[in-house]
């Protein structure tokens, strides 16, 4: 499952060439991802459990921050209702670049079991998502695996800010990550 030995030197066989500055910056970024506490419903409890005693999230360098300006990753855990969608987008916009989004649980991925009038059918309708995490509620180990997947994804990115910006909604369609 997880690769415990990470080789920062190689570019993992990719067509783009990562410079050593890229690798250094990506090492720094991936090993200290600070999530924004965006727990909405039941998945928030599993997110808290993953940050608590048994499944310690701190060993990955994550510290849960409440303010969007100080956070890198937004973990949307739980059902996004239509009343809340405006605030979720607003908080996403307030996050500073570089930022990533993990959509945790079925409700955030696709609306989940709540196929009703008041639920946004998938957070990716309004926020571009990097990693989708299935489960209802996903185990804390699954969330940590998703975080490690995100770290792998970050290490492949170029450190150039202009290429990674997510401001324009219309060029999002090519960037959707695969389901794990």
């Amino acid at each position: 499952m997880a690769q415990h030995q990470v080789n920062y030197a190689s570019a993992a066989g990719l067509p783009i060439a990562l410079t050593s500055v890229d690798k250094l910056v990506n090492w720094g970024r991936s090993n200290s991802l600070w999530p924004l506490t965006y727990g909405l419903a039941c998945c928030a409890i599993e997110m808290m459990a993953s940050g608590a005693s048994r499944y310690d999230f701190d060993r990955m360098g994550t510290i849960f921050r409440a303010s969007p300006r100080q956070a890198d990753v937004m973990i949307l855990a739980g059902t996004l209702s239509k009343k809340h969608s405006e605030f979720a987008r607003r908080l996403y916009d307030q996050m500073t670049e570089p930022k990533w989004v993990i959509s945790m649980g079925s409700c955030a991925n696709t609306g989940g079991m709540f196929n009703t009038y008041a639920t946004v059918q998938g957070v990716d309708r309004i926020i571009p998502v990097d990693i989708y995490l299935p489960g209802c509620a996903p185990r804390p180990e699954t969330l940590q695996y998703a975080m490690m997947m995100l770290q792998k994804k970050i290490r492949k990115e170029s450190a150039d800010m202009k290429k990674n910006t997510k401001q324009d909604l219309t060029n999002q369609t090519g960037k959707r990550a695969r389901l794990i």
Partner: peptide
Amino acid sequence: GYLHRGIEKMAENMTYNEFLPTTDR
């Protein structure tokens, strides 16, 4: 109302046994 998911309306459209896992949430 920021977590309103329409559970009561779902109950009107699901059988009694089908609805049980929804009460979990």
